[in-house]
Amino acid sequence: MAQLNYNHLRYFWVIAHEGGLGRAAEKLNVAPSALSVQLQKLELQIGHQLFERVGKRLRLTEAGRVALDYADTVFKTGEELLNTLQGRVDLDRKVLRVGAIPTMSRNFQLEFLRPLVGRDDVELVVRSGALRELLQDLEALVIDVVLSNSPAPQDARSAFRSLLLDEEPVSVVGRTGPAPFQFPADLHGAPLLLPSLGSEVRSAFDRMIDLAGVRPIIMAEVDDMAMLRLLARERQAYALVPPIVVRDELKSGMLRELHQVQGLAERFYAITQVRRFPNPLLDELLPGATSKD
């Protein structure tokens, strides 16, 4: 049985981390042409192309991303050996890269990731960004899953899967308010904190109050649920939020849930990409959802 050539693997590892043949060749003190030959030999041995050329840059293929994860583990072993002999044990860890749009509730993100939080063998990388940017990163294999309040756009070329994780009711909350609260009449002329105009919840809510002829005073439009939560705590104003966003404030009595808006719900999606080599950690968060088509 053929053995993996670890010299070739190391050359690939350096190319991937340096971002190209030129910088890697300089670091390894070898000619770029020789480095290219070694890379081709590795690709031939494992049966997969590891890079694709995009303009003047090299970009990892899906197989390349998987190979890099393994190479990181392999070459980390030497460091672990030194750490162990010097009394500093460094645990091998798997990495899950998560993207989340700003409107995604931090409490919901925590609940979604809870099976992996605190595990010594798992490193979580969570970044926030616009859905379009995160989907580009997902397609480029930079991240493994995107958490969003809306599904990924679908077209004939799309390889995205949008899995509905949960639906949460949306309520009017506030520090104080009349009891019973009359919706939507009590919002007329009242200060109100709202999600930004681009969200599905905001669009549906605007249609509701327009039909009822209600005109609140919009104090803020916020696309970040964490900021909306803080404003709801600090301002003497009503806020339109899923209760999970302000769960701790409702529990402590700092805020009150005044009215649950019927027919209005916040949806939470996990968006993945169809991959030959899905991140196995996703199976612990999305059982069965990462299998290949």
Rank of each mutant, 00 (worst) to 15 (best):
M254K: 08
M225A: 13
V14R: 05
L9E: 08
L187R: 01
D166L: 14
V173N: 03
G253E: 02
P102L: 10
V142I: 11
T84N: 03
L50H: 09
Y269V: 04
Q236G: 00
P151Y: 12
T73M: 10
R106P: 02
Q136A: 15
N149W: 00
V117Q: 14
L164P: 02
G253T: 03
R114V: 03
N279Q: 09
S150C: 08
V246A: 08
V170S: 01
P32C: 05
I209T: 07
A289G: 15
Y70W: 12
A156P: 00
N29H: 14
S291P: 00
M104R: 00
G263L: 13
I209Q: 05
V54T: 06
R106E: 10
A2V: 12
L197N: 11
L165T: 04
D155C: 05
D210T: 13
D186F: 03
L21P: 06
E123N: 10
V214M: 14
E18V: 06
V246I: 11
V246F: 08
A34V: 12
M1C: 03
L240M: 04
N29Y: 08
L96R: 07
S199C: 00
V172K: 01
L164D: 03
D137S: 07
D224Q: 14
L258N: 02
I46H: 07
L131F: 08
V95Q: 12
F268Q: 07
G213W: 13
I217D: 14
A24P: 06
P153H: 14
D90R: 15
D248S: 15
R93H: 15
L110W: 00
L264D: 06
L230F: 03
S128H: 13
A2L: 09
L60N: 07
V246R: 03
V222D: 06
E62S: 09
M219L: 14
L163P: 01
M208S: 04
H188R: 00
Y11E: 12
E18N: 11
G288F: 01
D248G: 08
D283V: 09
L194C: 08
G177A: 11
E257H: 03
P169M: 11
L60R: 14
L135Y: 11
V89D: 08
M219D: 11
P178G: 11
R215L: 10
E79H: 08
Y269S: 06
L44P: 00
V241C: 07
V126L: 15
L281M: 11
Y269K: 05
N5M: 00
L231F: 15
E200S: 13
M104V: 13
E62I: 11
A239H: 04
G55V: 06
